[in-house]
Each structure stands twice: as C-alpha cells, then as structure tokens.
C-alpha cells in the first residue's frame, strides 16, 4: 500500500465507524475539494452508495458556480441533499457584505449559527427533490447527533489538535483543553444525550494529498479551482466577499499537484486567501470553539 492507500483506508474506517455508531448522522458538504473528497470516500466506504444525507450551509454569498456544481453532482450521484441557512440574519442584513457586521460576526451568523440550528432541526431544512430537481422543505426535523466534516489538521493551528471523533456540547462549543482520548483506532462513540460528535475522517490529509487523490481517482471537481484564462484561480473556496483568487496558471489537477509540490505554493499556507482567519489573530480558534467548521 502506498501513502494515499493508507490515508484512504483510515478515512474509510472512520466513516464506517461513524455510520455504525450514530443513528442520526449527516455529512457536511461545502462543495470545496476537501468535502468532495470526503463524499468520494463515503462512496468508497459504502461501495458506491452514500447512505447518509449531505448538508450544505448556504450563506447565499457562495460563488454561483458552486451551487450549480452541487446540484449537478447531487442528481447524478443520487444524493440525499439538504441545505440550511440563517434566514433571519440574511433578511436583517446582519452580514459583512451589507456592512452591518465584521467578517467574524458574519461567519458566525451565516455559518456557525446556521449550522447549529440546521443540525438541531430547529430551523427549516430544504431537501432536493430528485424528480423535479427543486428544493422542498424537509419534513424530517430530527437532530443530527453525528456530523461528518472534512477539516484537515494541516489547515491551521486549532485544527492540528482535533480528534477524529470530537464532541461538541449543546451549544456546539468545543472544549479544546479537555478533548477525549483516542487510543489506536478506538474513538469516542459514547456521549451524553444532548451533545453531538463531529467526525473528521480527513485529519491526516494535507492539501497536496487531497489533490493527488483527486488526480488518482479522477474525482469531478468544480472548475473554480482552475485558471479560467485570466491567470487567476481559487485555491480555497468560500464566500465571494471574503475569498480571493490567487495568481496561478494551473489549468488542471496535474498542474495543481505540481504547483503545490515544487511551484509557487509549496510554502504558502492554503487559507492565506481567507480574510476571516487574519481577523481572528491568525488562527480560527475563537470561531471554531463556538461551532465553526
């Protein structure tokens, strides 16, 4: 087995463990490369099937191509596709682009809060109707007690300290100073009612591993990651007001792998194009403690 085989096997093991242990579980799909690899790994783990719902938190500031790509794949792969949103904050314009909050608060409103209430079932969820291709209100309002998330340890400091199975309390808070032990391949699968667990199958993957795997498996990925002819591409995808493309002429997955290995990005942090990180003092700890992914 080569290194990618080992990473894949470990992620599959974690996914199967999560699917076995949690009655009510979902997977977050941000449409970016990492969670798309995660989705692919679920198809690996479950032999072509995706037996759990995918949840997308729609901030309505996502780059429009992302939404199209989401729905195309969801229909093609027959996914149970859900989205949730912070309707109130959007209606009241409590966002950074509207000029009413700073970046961090905007992230908290549109992502952390929306995620919390979408997972708990308190706020409406919308489900893709495969016959019409439209989203309709989801009648299932159950709380998800297991949430699979595609974060990687190499992204930033607080993520480097994550567990594969990481508990969050009722308020979605993360007690980073007192995390549960994980010995060998035994994870935290028992939890106090009311709390939930975030599952991180991609912790050991680096950005380069992700692209190498996309190349090997030929995973369809949104073209926003490639140079569209203007010498610019997205390295990391988020909301358009806070995510900036990087200068790059990489036109396909092979170019990106090469660029990350030996080229201009070999030593530049991936999230350097994400403005909210800088606002949090260089790390995401503050945001992540209160529920950010």
């Amino acid at each position: 087995m080569n290194y990618l085989d080992k990473l894949e096997a470990q992620s599959v093991y974690i996914l199967r463990e999560a699917y076995r242990e949690f009655k009510s579980i979902c997977m977050l799909w941000s449409i970016g490369k990492d969670s798309t690899v995660l989705l692919w790994l679920a198809r690996k783990a479950f032999f072509g099937h995706v037996p759990l719902p995918l949840v997308h938190i729609d901030t309505h500031y996502k780059i429009p191509e992302m939404i199209n790509y989401r729905d195309e794949l969801a229909l093609q792969w027959k996914l149970t596709m859900l989205y949730g949103e912070n309707a109130t904050a959007l209606a009241q314009k409590q966002t950074f682009p509207d000029g009413n909050t700073d970046r961090i608060t905007c992230c908290r409103n549109l992502k952390s809060e929306a995620l919390k209430h979408t997972l708990s079932g308190e706020w409406p969820r919308y489900i893709l109707d495969h016959s019409s291709g439209q989203y309709v209100p989801d009648l299932n309002r159950e709380q998800y007690t297991g949430v699979i998330v595609g974060v990687r340890a190499d992204e930033e400091g607080s993520r480097s300290k994550e567990r594969y199975f990481s508990p969050r309390d009722q308020e979605n808070d993360w007690d980073v100073g007192d995390q549960p032990p994980e010995f060998w391949n035994q994870f935290k699968t028992d939890f106090v009612p009311g709390t939930h667990i975030r599952i991180h199958p991609l912790l050991d993957w680096t950005e380069l591993n992700i692209w190498e795997y996309i190349e090997r498996e030929q995973i369809p990925i949104t073209p926003l990651y490639f140079d569209q002819g203007n010498g610019k591409r997205y390295r990391s995808l988020g909301c358009y007001p806070c995510t900036f493309p990087v200068e790059s002429t990489a036109r396909n997955v092979g170019d990106i792998v090469e660029e990350l290995k030996n080229g201009k990005f070999a030593k530049i942090a991936e999230r350097s194009g994400r403005a909210q990180d800088q606002d949090d003092g260089g790390g995401l700890e503050t945001l992540r403690k209160s529920g950010y992914m």
Partner: peptide
C-alpha cells in the same frame, strides 16, 4: 489492544 469506557469516556487502554 483494547480500551475501557467509563461514563461515556474512554478512560483506559
């Protein structure tokens, strides 16, 4: 190899 769970927490290995 094994672990022991006490009151929801892995408490020994």
């Amino acid at each position: 190899r094994f672990v022991i769970v006490d009151n929801y927490e892995i408490s020994g290995g």
